[in-house]
């Protein structure tokens, strides 16, 4: 276990203890609707869309980039799927088309960053603005509702006693982790993030690495958007994923992936998401409003940053 990994584990433990103190029923478990219930399960369940975003964000940040557009990509993915469903299309077609939309946004980001040389912050700022606009234009600014239990099961179903969202998050994490560490991909990505010039001189396909990371982030974001849409059985193009890019970035930073690029800690990001979501759930259980939640998150992140700052 690397040092940042250990740090985020300790932090998670501290946060969980704090949550248990804040909300006495935090550690209770129950069983109902064919699955395990309880605050901790809820933490994982609610955190899954953010987790999918954070997984992609880890790769992009590991490459020294940033993707601000994931929230808008979520809205596009959800909107596309909902439109297909509302028109009577099959659930799998809706899902695939939603992911395809995310892939297009991601590839667009990759092209802007690599082919046009736009700084990632600006490139994804553009797709953030235009992306949400596109989602709104797709649905005419309306909230598209659908009554399709087979699609809604994507977010509310259960499998082997656990919410199906958990399995999806685990699947995405394990698949991506295997892709990174069982193949050369992880090493290449880190090399490109650490020193792009050196990586290119070594013959690494730097441009393709960027394309891959942004495209994958787009697909994962569209997936997260579909979880959100399936959860409320509607595509809300105005608020789906709003500000969620910030949660994802914070989770990645908490997890120990350096914003300067060159290091990828996938599991750290998973733990980072759980930390943020545990705080959120505990504060909500305590009856705190969203306002206290926002202030709490901001203070927690700054305190963490002060504690773990690198020496000058």
């Amino acid at each position: 276990m690397t040092r940042p990994g250990l740090r985020v584990l300790v932090l998670l433990a501290v946060v969980l203890v704090a949550c248990a103190l804040l909300a006495p029923r935090f550690l209770e478990f129950g069983f109902g609707d064919g699955r395990l219930r309880g605050a901790l399960v809820d933490v994982a369940h609610r955190g899954m869309p953010t987790l999918l975003l954070a997984l992609g964000m880890t790769l992009v940040i590991g490459l020294g980039g940033i993707d601000l557009s994931v929230g808008s990509t979520m809205a596009i993915g959800g909107a596309l799927a909902a439109l297909v469903l509302a028109a009577g299309g099959a659930a799998w077609v809706a899902f695939a088309l939603g992911l395809g939309g995310g892939l297009c946004v991601g590839l667009g980001n990759g092209l802007l960053v690599r082919a046009a040389g736009v700084p990632p912050l600006v490139a994804t700022l553009i797709t953030l603005t235009a992306g949400r606009g596109l989602a709104q234009a797709l649905t005419g600014g309306q909230i598209v509702t659908f009554e399709r239990p087979e699609y809604a099961a994507l977010a509310s179903g259960a499998f082997l006693g656990l919410p199906v969202t958990l399995w999806q998050g685990a699947l995405a994490t394990v698949a991506l982790g295997a892709l990174l560490r069982a193949t050369r991909l992880g090493l290449y990505l880190e090399a490109c993030g650490d020193n792009p010039r050196a990586a290119r001189l070594c013959g690494l396909p730097v441009a393709r690495m960027h394309g891959f990371a942004y495209a994958l982030t787009g697909v994962l974001a569209a997936w997260a958007g579909q979880l959100a849409a399936a959860d409320i059985r509607a595509a809300d193009v105005h608020s789906t994923g709003l500000y969620l890019e910030l949660d994802a970035i914070l989770a990645v930073v908490l997890g120990g992936t350096a914003l300067t690029g060159g290091r990828i800690h996938l599991l750290g990001s998973v733990l980072g998401v759980l930390i943020l979501q545990a705080l959120t759930t505990a504060l909500l259980m305590r009856g705190a409003g969203t306002e206290a939640l926002l202030v709490g998150k901001a203070v927690a992140v700054l305190v963490f940053a002060l504690l773990t700052r690198r020496p000058a």
Binding site: I66, L121, L246, I249, L250, V253, L259, G289, T290, E291, A292, L293, L294, V295, G296, K297, A298, V299, V301, L302, A305, L306, R309, R310, A312
Partner: peptide
């Protein structure tokens, strides 16, 4: 914190949004 300013002001954004609602 020696963090990039976009991250610190991101936290600031959360803080101010929360403060406004408070």
């Amino acid at each position: 914190t020696r963090l990039p300013s976009f991250l610190v002001t991101l936290a600031g954004m959360f803080f101010l949004r929360g403060a406004a609602l408070l």
